[in-house]
Computed example of a mutant assay.
Amino acid sequence: MVGIETSDDAAIYKVTDDIAMIQTVDFFTPIVDDPYTFGQIAAANSLSDVYAMGGEPKVALNIVGFPNCLDPEILGEILKGGADKVLESGAVLVGGHSVQDDEPKYGLSVSGFVHPDRIFKNYGCRPGDVLILTKQIGSGIVNTAVKAEMASKQAEEEAITVMSSLNKKAKEAAEKYPVSACTDITGFGLLGHCAEMASASDVTLEIHVRDTAYIEEAVGYAKMGLIPAGAYKNREHSGHMVDAGGVEEFYLDLLYDPQTSGGLLFSVPEDFSEGFLRDLEEKRLDTKVSVIGRVLEKQEKLILLR
């Protein structure tokens, strides 16, 4: 039902009239020093693709690369972090596969289920829709500041909360609404994923830069030039699709910032946006929800920054 044609978050295969299977895989190298926290973040990131398709994760398999020169207890902590996050999601961890590698790598292959009529896709945005994002952005910039030993403990903790939080509650809040499109914000940054969504939907997205929620201290770090290399690659890839409209440079760095385990971006008909926001508030997410813009008829550029 869903393959690679629209760069969607996961593949979907119809099993019966009532059941479709979601399949995804993701893994990466450590982005934090603590192995348990790394395991949590990597697992949350892998599980996110299932939530982005409107599904429930059911079965997960570990994918591990690990050097033989490191203490095996480190690997144990990584796996414990991942297992605890899978347990939180309600899925079952049933094993996996490991190989010797020069640097640690960890993630999950996840299978989930969704009703064939209730799939969230990354296309289908309609003019007039409201764009709602369920996590603040800036984790890549904060992680860069951490590596430079310039980040505060508060900023580091907020970034970890953002990256390790499941998108489970946000998906549950969205289930009763006619979601036009949905994707999760990860390595391509907010603007990269918006460009994919706009292109696949044949529309233009207007992004309200100052209404978008950011990790509190990420704005200051962006002004200082603490920008990860991935942000420049993202700008190179999708910058020609964006009308920046005179927006300050540090905002562009934030909007192109590669996110790890970011939030869900929903395109929702305006008539349902108030109810959806109210339900998100009742879910008591650990992250900040923001209305970041709206969907317009297709224009010369896929993204307009205002």
Rank of each mutant, 00 (worst) to 15 (best):
Ser201Cys: 01
Phe250Glu: 08
Glu281Gln: 13
Gly293Phe: 00
Pro269Ile: 05
Lys105Ile: 11
Ile132Trp: 07
Phe188Pro: 00
Tyr177Pro: 14
Glu281Lys: 15
Val59Thr: 15
Phe276Met: 10
Leu108Gln: 08
Gly55His: 08
Glu216Arg: 13
Arg284Glu: 10
Glu236Asn: 15
Cys182Asn: 01
Tyr13Leu: 14
Thr212Asn: 04
Ala83Thr: 12
Ile41Gln: 09
Val110Gln: 06
Glu249Pro: 03
Thr204Lys: 01
Leu277Cys: 10
Pro228Gly: 06
Gly246Ile: 03
Pro104Val: 13
Glu172Val: 08
Leu226Thr: 05
Ala244Lys: 15
Ala42Gln: 14
Ile119Val: 09
Glu196Cys: 04
Ser46Trp: 05
Lys233Gln: 14
Met163Thr: 02
Leu133Thr: 01
Thr287Asp: 03
Leu61Asp: 11
Val146Cys: 15
Asp211Val: 06
Glu103Pro: 10
Val32Asp: 11
Leu304His: 07
Ala173Ser: 11
Ser273Ala: 15
Ser89Asp: 10
Thr6His: 15
Tyr51Pro: 11
Glu149Met: 07
Pro104Tyr: 10
Asp26Ala: 11
Ile41Tyr: 11
Ile22Arg: 06
Cys69Leu: 12
Leu296Gly: 04
Gly293Asn: 02
Gly138Thr: 00
Val146Pro: 15
Tyr177Glu: 02
Val162Glu: 15
Ser165Gln: 10
Tyr256His: 09
Leu47Lys: 01
Lys176Ser: 05
Leu205Lys: 04
Asp18His: 10
Val295Glu: 06
His208Pro: 01
Phe28Pro: 05
Val25Asp: 04
Gly3Pro: 08
Leu166Ser: 05
Asp211Ser: 14
Ile22Gly: 12
Gly225Phe: 03
Ile74Trp: 12
Ile119Leu: 00
Ile137Lys: 02
Gly263Ala: 06
Met241Asn: 15
Asn167Asp: 06
Ala20Met: 09
Asp9Ala: 12
Val92Tyr: 11
Pro104Phe: 13
Asp9Arg: 02
Arg294Val: 01
Ala42Val: 06
Thr161Ala: 15
Val64Asn: 13
Leu79His: 09
Ala173Cys: 06
Glu5Trp: 05
Pro228Ser: 04
Gly76Leu: 04
Lys171Tyr: 07
Gln259Thr: 07
Ala60Gln: 08
Ser7His: 14
Phe266Met: 08
Pro57Gly: 12
Leu131Gln: 01
Gly239Cys: 09
Ala198Cys: 01
Leu190Thr: 02
Lys153Phe: 03
Pro127Val: 02
Gly220Leu: 03
Pro35Lys: 14
Ile119Gly: 01
Leu305Pro: 07
Glu274Phe: 14
Lys233Pro: 04
Gly189Met: 02
Gly55Cys: 11
Lys168Ser: 13
Phe266Val: 07
Val142Ala: 05
Gly245Glu: 10
Ile137Arg: 01
Ser164Arg: 12
Thr186His: 03
Cys69Gly: 10
Asn234Leu: 05
Gly55Asn: 11
Thr16Val: 12
Leu75Asp: 12
Ala244His: 12
Tyr51Leu: 07
Gly187Val: 03
Tyr123Phe: 08
Glu156Met: 15
Ile31Gly: 08
Met224Val: 07
Glu172Arg: 14
Val242Ala: 07
Val50Gln: 02
